[in-house]
Computed example of a mutant assay.
Amino acid sequence: MAVPIFRASVPKSHPLIHSLFSTSFTDETLKKRRMLVSCAPSATKPVREELSFCVGTHLIPHPSKVEKGGEDAFFVSTYNGGVIAVADGVSGWAEQKVDPSLFPKELMAYASSFVEDVEVNDNPQVLIGKAHAATSSIGSATVIVAMLERNGILKIANVGDCGLRVIREGKVYFSTSPQEHYFDCPFQLSSQAFGQTYRDAVVSSVELVEGDTIVMGSDGLFDNVFDHEIVSNLTGYKDVAEAAKALANLASNHSLDAKFDSPYIIEARARGFEAPFWKKILGMKLTGGKPDDITVVVGQVVSL
């Protein structure tokens, strides 16, 4: 199934924003829009033609946000070796009567439209900055963008706690690290002056080889699934779309399991958070997953 390349500048009120980035899988038509898979290179043959992505995606909204499709957004492009990106809206804006999903959706729509700009020059940090400057919605979001060059170099820029893993030969070969002000308060791009900018992004690069698997996601994935679980679950799937769906479902199941010792809750205990008083009396510790929007992008590195 070919990945549509979203390159047109789309204003926040445009219906494409909702249909491409926020609607959950409710029927086969929407599933085809959201579960994007492509192994085909672009028609124009580049000077150096070596590696590209075969990509599958899956999004599961927070249980209370299913109707509006959640507050995560993402895009996939076949430009160059491939571009993948995820943005996670900050839900705290809802307390100010602001829809937290609008900012990340618009941010990703503009990022997808600027991918080929000469000013961007295949630099994910610059792409984030250009998209942020164009975004007019009120709100904020964490974001990660990865751009693959045909020579196998993957360039990554992230602000906040969306993450990326490179899996090679059954092990995590590379991992991004989250940025936060304090526990559960990540760095974020914002419509307000107090937020971070593209200059605050952590910029990294890694040389990929054929057969590597890229796993990108919002914190809904990494707060609920351990790295070793990601690796073990990938081994059972050859199809990237099915792999993305499986990881998203695993994260969703963990997030709703009150007895699961999730990565999020282990970190919370390490930071001094404790179980409610009645649980402490019964000798119970703080446990459980973290209900959240869950976005998973799985990319298989293939030779052209």
Rank of each mutant, 00 (worst) to 15 (best):
D292R: 03
G288P: 04
E149K: 13
V55W: 08
R271T: 03
A87V: 04
G299K: 07
V83I: 05
G195H: 07
E49W: 12
V225N: 00
T57I: 11
A133N: 14
C39W: 13
D227Y: 02
K155G: 03
D122V: 11
G160A: 08
F103E: 00
T29P: 04
V159E: 11
P46A: 10
V215D: 00
V296S: 06
V55L: 13
L127E: 04
G160Q: 05
I144R: 02
L20P: 06
G160N: 09
S24A: 15
K32C: 07
L107I: 07
N224T: 01
T295W: 03
M1F: 11
D239Y: 00
G211M: 02
K171H: 12
D257T: 05
S38N: 14
A246S: 06
I153N: 07
V120Q: 05
E267M: 07
L247S: 01
K290A: 02
G129V: 02
D161Q: 10
A246W: 00
S91F: 04
V3F: 06
D72V: 05
L234G: 05
G272V: 01
C54E: 15
D219Y: 07
A40V: 15
H62T: 07
G82Q: 07
M284H: 14
S9C: 09
V83H: 03
E210Q: 13
V3D: 06
Q188S: 13
G217I: 00
S19V: 15
K97F: 10
A248Y: 01
G217L: 01
D293F: 04
P46H: 11
A85R: 01
V120N: 01
A134S: 14
G289W: 03
R7V: 06
L164P: 00
S24N: 13
T26R: 13
G70E: 05
E50T: 13
